[in-house]
């Protein structure tokens, strides 16, 4: 396997509830860079992240991380592999019964034998890196969304991982929090020589910090390349997503029979109904 690719996905197929989410997907993600995985909602971005984290098993194909095929690993090997990854979940996933300090200390308590003093220093350093050293006594319920994501980030980097996976880091954030997170992701990647993979559908924010963009759609890879390349692409589907057009190659309408025939049968069946109902049907 190559030195430059940290993650390789080969011929991956995955179905959920009889809906095929990936059909023979092939992607590779390079070491030391920020890679953004983008695509419309429901295209399986988060599922892909779970597959990379080894929390889901592919139906077919391979997911290789750190040159290891995840589906072939024993439980213990998977656990030790995971200690080299950090994950920032969409909701932050802070443990609600622990305060900020204990949340960040959690992976250290689990996997290292630091003394209480060393542990305290380590946690304070991580919190300082995300600018929340002063908030260490707060409970997760007292934090804003942006703050809990920053705490979760501090927790994710506490064990010094080589790879960080970000699940929708920008979703539902105000512009300031978004800028803070962008800066953190980029800075962490460069200072700690990490590899970062972020899943997002916020095109502008993701493109601003990504070295490479992977665009998913219809169960497969649509495009891969530098952000500028994709922004200037001539492919209609890539253009539509990157520039956010409402209608285009990916249609605005959910597949349905022709509107006029449906309206006729609808109104024919409900002649007694007022015209207002027909109007409502049309809006739907």
């Amino acid at each position: 396997m190559s030195q430059t690719n940290l993650i390789e996905v080969r011929d991956l197929s995955f179905a959920r509830a009889e809906r095929l989410i990936f059909d023979k997907l092939n992607i590779s993600i390079r070491r030391g860079r920020v890679t953004a995985i983008m695509g419309p909602s429901g295209c399986g971005k988060t599922t892909l992240l779970r597959l990379i984290g080894g929390q889901l098993q592919p139906a077919q194909g391979q997911v290789c991380v750190f040159d290891e095929d995840l589906s072939k690993l024993s439980r213990d090997r998977l656990t030790s592999l995971r200690s080299r990854m950090g994950v920032l979940f969409q909701s932050g996933a802070l443990f609600t019964d622990l305060d900020v300090f204990e949340n960040v200390a959690f992976p250290l308590r689990e996997h290292s034998s630091l003394s209480e003093d060393e542990l305290r220093d380590q946690v304070l350093l991580q919190l300082e890196a995300v600018g929340l050293r002063g908030a260490r006594h707060l409970m997760p319920s007292e934090l804003s969304g942006g703050m809990s994501r920053r705490v979760a980030l501090a927790r994710a980097i506490a064990m010094g991982p080589e790879l960080i996976l970000y699940d929708e880091p920008f979703a539902g954030q105000d512009p300031i929090a978004m800028a803070v997170l962008q800066r953190l992701i980029r800075a962490l990647n460069d200072q700690m020589q990490l590899t970062s993979v972020l899943v997002s559908h916020d095109v502008a924010e993701a493109c601003a910090i990504a070295d490479e963009v992977i665009l998913l759609g219809r169960g497969n890879l649509l495009a891969q390349g530098a952000p500028e390349e994709l922004l200037n692409s001539n492919d209609p589907m890539v253009r539509q997503f990157m520039h956010g057009h409402a209608d285009g190659a990916i249609p605005f309408h959910f597949p349905a029979p022709d509107l006029m025939t449906e309206l006729r049968t609808e109104s024919g069946r409900n002649q007694a109904r007022s015209s207002g109902v027909v109007e409502a049907v049309e809006l739907n």
Binding site: R50, T79, R82, F89, S91, G92, A93, T96, F106, P107
Partner: peptide, 17 residues
């Protein structure tokens, strides 16, 4: 259920717990 919805269970798993 809430721990599952807020991904706390998944998060534990990723910490090898």
């Amino acid at each position: 259920g809430l721990m599952k919805a807020t991904e706390q269970l998944a998060s534990l798993e990723m910490f090898g717990v």
